[in-house]
């Protein structure tokens, strides 16, 4: 299978990619992947015709996929849609998605990632709170082990909708984040990796190095304390793109490749 356009959703949002493909009147399939989850969106002449991800299909699926802040995408041209599940004009889809993106920006102020795990606050809220049935369903699944993504999958709801509910539950003081409960299952990059990264990067870029590294970690939706080892090379590559001098960039990459390969 051939990919002509590929990248990471942390660098380019799904809305931006779709806008680009739509304005270019492209035909083909856009695949998105986040861990084990996958989704696909079909365009014909720039018009979005069909979207599917897990059990979701159609317009609601598009909005759910737009809520993925992390993951990979690839566009394969000239693949026709197997069916048409979206009748809404593409421009209208973009308007709704843009509003959703604005809300995501607010949610991200409170939620570090949709992989974050929460538990019910023992102290509860100081005021009377009324919950909608859907909010109660979400709250009932919070157990200090399930992430927001897990709960969205369990209830077969969009990640965005569940994150929005988490946002209001957290704001009401009903939930608190369980640090590292989920992330202990994945291998964390050792501190020595960050020491090498900072030292080598500072050598090339100067004292602003640590700030750039922190920014990139944040853009990847991660944090330094629980940074997954599997994404270490990706971080190095992203950081290295900040080095404009290609010779210096290669020297930096060479040093870091040795670190990553354990030489």
């Amino acid at each position: 299978m051939v990919e002509v356009l590929r990248g990471n959703l942390a660098q380019l949002s799904l809305l931006d990619i779709l806008r680009m493909l739509s304005s270019g009147r492209r035909t083909g399939r856009l695949d998105v992947r986040q861990g084990m989850k996958t989704g696909e969106i079909y365009l014909h002449g720039g018009v979005i015709l069909h979207a599917a991800a897990g059990t979701q299909i159609g317009e609601s699926c598009i909005y759910a996929l737009m809520g993925w802040l992390e993951g990979e995408f690839s566009f394969t041209p000239d693949i026709p849609a197997p069916e048409r599940s979206i009748q809404t004009p593409t421009e209208q889809l973009f308007l709704v998605a843009a509003r959703q993106a604005e809300q995501w920006a607010d949610i991200k102020e409170v939620l570090s990632s949709t992989e974050a795990v929460f538990n019910i606050s023992p102290s509860g809220s100081t005021s009377t709170i009324s919950l909608k049935p859907i909010e109660w369903q979400v709250l009932a699944q919070v157990n200090g082990e399930r992430s927001i993504q897990d709960i969205a999958n369990l209830l077969e709801l969009g990640e965005f909708d569940v994150a929005k509910i988490f946002y209001s539950l957290i704001s009401a003081g009903l939930l608190y984040e369980v640090t590292g409960a989920k992330r202990t299952f994945r291998e964390i990059a050792p501190e020595s990796f960050f020491e090498h990264l900072t030292e080598n990067f500072n050598e090339v870029i100067g004292p602003i190095g640590p700030v750039i590294i922190e920014d990139e970690i944040k853009l990847m939706g991660e944090n330094r304390e629980a940074f997954p080892h599997a994404r270490a090379a990706e971080l190095v590559e992203r950081v290295s793109l900040e080095i404009t001098d290609s010779a210096k960039r290669t020297v930096f990459q060479k040093k870091m490749v040795q670190v990553l390969k354990g030489n």
Binding site: A230, A233, E234, V236, E237, S240, Q253, M256, V257, L260
Partner: peptide, 8 residues
């Protein structure tokens, strides 16, 4: 690991 391969 594609980023690591690309840098190598």
């Amino acid at each position: 690991d594609i980023p690591l391969l690309r840098m190598s």
